[in-house]
Nucleic acid binder design. Structure first.
Lengths: 217, 217
DNA sequence: TGCCATATTGCACAATCGTATAGCAATAGA
DNA sequence: TCTATTGCTATACGATTGTGCAATATGGCA
């Protein structure tokens, strides 16, 4: 019997590799199928290493949820910064980014749903979720506010929050519909549907959000 | 040692009891924590009975997903039949019902999410989900079509489906937001937000959906 | 080059998993 | 009231679970 040869990685590299392996395993086999040994196999290490880096398997899975949410909110925040021109262009790009690859991904939707199922009864998951939700809502409000002002519309905080809640629901719902890919329609239609619906929700003139993106692809 | 006393129930009663126990267990402990013994304990029986009624634990959990979805679509369909008056009242009641208790329930959201996480990789779950989604979309289209006609608007199938997709996303998203209950706002606001957003998406005159429900709740 | 700190492996352990099976007991029908 | 059916319990089995611990080989540093 010969021992398995191995490399010593840096703390961050190994941690990330384990977290990615955890997400891969959860996305494929669910929380019930993602055993410590299977996750370790995904990461190319043995199960004992989990304890060394995260203390316990549950702690690693929790960390993986935080890792996933961190990636997703970072992507959302980044797509909100792009195209710093007119407010309508800003919001339009943000919306489209959320219903288009790579943000729209069946793997991410599956992971998100799997973890969301634990939010109700596990406080650690609830905390992570609540924070990310608040961040997304704030992001939307900061995009809506200048847009309302530009159209000389009331833009008090209550109004902005109401619009943000509705817009967030729309985006979440379309992201889910697209990611689940029931195959009832083509996901190429999603950006168009999302933008026209958002125009309606915000009571903006037709094509206000769609025009600035014309010819983008 | 004395054996546990027991009653012989009818096939349907025992099946439903086991399915409810499965959902209770999954909602509380997740798919990974819902073991055969724990589910049996919830149902007040011993684990061996699962094999007798469902063949295997996995088969029972799949049946529980179908059972849950069946309940939810039945409730949705029922709330669509109520108030058979003007088209706008019809749609308005349907929307409100979906963002109000008992349809809006944190337990149902948790269960839905947990199972949705398995749709991507398990064909049996995908089949159940796809069918229920198609049914919900059709339901929405049958509510939208007469409403568009009443306002002398184009109501071709493509237009109706686009509106249904957007409206479904909005309802799903608000249902999720409300059921997750992050406590950032009061869920009493949800019906108002849902109706005004729906008016916007469908490009209906303000208060078209809100007026017929004034004074209801 | 050689040594040392430690990242990593390998294994054992109790607990729990799903389920197959044998037999008890509750209930419907005679 | 007796009997036959079978719903249900009880138990055992092998596989798998998470994890604690000892041994080891690796890569940085003197």
């Amino acid at each position: 019997m010969s021992r398995k040869p191995f490399q010593r990685w840096s703390l961050d590299e190994r941690r990330c590799a384990l977290l990615e392996a955890t997400l891969d395993s959860v996305a494929e086999d669910g929380l019930s199928g993602a055993s410590a040994r299977r996750i370790a196999e995904h990461a190319g290490v043995t199960a004992g290493l989990i304890r060394h880096y995260f203390g316990s398997k549950d702690a690693m899975v929790r960390a993986a949820y935080g890792y996933l949410i961190g990636q997703m909110t970072a992507e959302a925040a980044q797509s909100a910064e792009e195209g710093g021109e007119a407010p309508e262009q800003h919001l339009a790009r943000f919306i489209v980014a959320n219903v288009t690859a790579p943000n729209l991904s069946s793997r991410k939707v599956a992971l998100w749903a799997t973890f969301i199922g634990r939010v109700r009864t596990e406080p650690d998951y609830a905390e992570i979720h609540r924070e990310s939700y608040r961040e997304f809502l704030n992001l939307l409000e900061t995009l809506i506010h200048p847009l309302l002002l530009a159209f000389e519309r009331p833009a008090d905080p209550v109004t902005c929050q109401r619009y943000a809640i509705a817009l967030n629901a729309l985006i979440d719902g379309l992201w889910l519909e697209g990611g689940l890919g029931h195959g009832l329609y083509d996901t190429v239609l999603l950006p168009e549907i999302a933008l026209s619906a958002a125009e309606g929700i915000l009571a903006l003139p037709a094509d206000t959000l769609r025009r600035p993106l014309a010819g983008d692809g």
